[in-house]
């Protein structure tokens, strides 16, 4: 198809050309960003969660206190506040550490009024770094933030699941002379997943629905592009002038998310059926 002169096109041909512009390709690519975030964050958060849950069960008081605080603090506070907080806090924390290591001779204070000043070498990414490094760094920060927040959610689910494994199982293990670590590895870990699955699948849904918040963390995600592409375009600036179409772009995003949650739901339901097959649980029925 010839898209060289869109003004001469009309109807479907125009739309086909319009939907394949370079910016639209970037828009479609950003759906990949969302899926990438989900794919990386879910296992990372699970790992954080496992760490948190193990810490919360620890016999060492400071570790237990840390684990419980980590779990509790996310509960009382809106997650979006955490996102906004961690993105700056992590960035400043990393730069501060690099500053301490790389510029030991620096004698000025780091916080000067409303400025956060570190030496040039400690900047992250370096001022001279190419654009893509800035983008990757931003995405990694966002991903890490997601992992911290959802790690706390996962920790709560896994903590509950560890508690739900029947006491008798653990007592039997002790009677066989297994140590605490062995009991954990051989008895508790394999059995807790079936108790954790309803909570974790719920968490997966919550995670999917939290991905548009990437926009607030400064990543060029689907929300960014939908606002960008949907806004009114005048003939001076583009070959494809149109009115305010942001509503339709967000409708498309709405449908995308509905599909994503619907597919996840049916996959998780199948997984649950498979896992609970023959198990003496209620099959993860949540009231």
């Amino acid at each position: 198809m010839n898209c060289a002169d869109p003004a001469t096109l009309d109807g479907l041909a125009w739309l086909a050309c319009y939907l394949t512009t370079g910016k639209h390709m970037a828009f479609y690519g950003s759906f990949g960003t969302v899926l990438l975030l989900l794919a990386i964050t879910a296992p990372t958060a699970l790992l954080f969660g496992l760490g948190g849950a193990i810490a919360a069960r620890s016999r060492i008081l400071p570790l237990r206190a840390f684990g419980k605080t980590y779990i509790a603090i996310v509960r009382g506070v809106p997650d979006i506040a955490f996102f906004l907080f961690f993105v700056i806090a992590l960035d400043q924390g990393l730069e501060y550490l690099r500053h301490q290591v790389l510029c030991p001779g620096w004698d000025q204070p780091i916080r000067q009024g409303s400025d956060f000043v570190v030496c040039q070498a400690a900047k992250l990414p370096l001022g001279t770094a190419p654009q893509w490094q800035h983008e990757v760094y931003g995405f990694l920060l966002a991903m890490f933030t997601f992992a911290i927040v959802f790690g706390a959610f996962a920790a709560n689910v896994l903590f509950g699941a560890m508690m739900a494994v029947p006491r008798a199982q653990l007592e039997t293990a002790e009677a066989y002379g297994l140590t605490r670590a062995q009991t954990f590895r051989r008895i508790l870990m394999p059995q807790m997943w079936v108790y954790a699955l309803p909570g974790l699948s719920n968490l997966w849904m919550v995670l999917i629905k939290a991905t548009p918040l990437l926009f607030l963390l400064g990543v060029e995600d689907i929300v960014y592009w939908a606002r960008e592409l949907g806004g009114t375009k005048t003939p001076n600036f583009t070959d494809y002038p149109h009115g305010d179409w942001r509503m339709w772009y967000f409708l498309a995003l709405l449908v995308f998310y509905l599909l994503l949650t619907k597919v996840s739901e049916s996959v998780l339901e199948r997984l649950m059926k498979r896992l609970t097959y023959g198990q003496a649980t209620t099959g993860g029925m949540t009231a």
Binding site: L251, L253, Y257
Partner: peptide
């Protein structure tokens, strides 16, 4: 329940 509240807000506003 199936879509993010954030997107619902944006859609509703526009």
């Amino acid at each position: 329940r199936g879509s993010p509240l954030f997107i619902q807000f944006f859609f509703a506003y526009f």
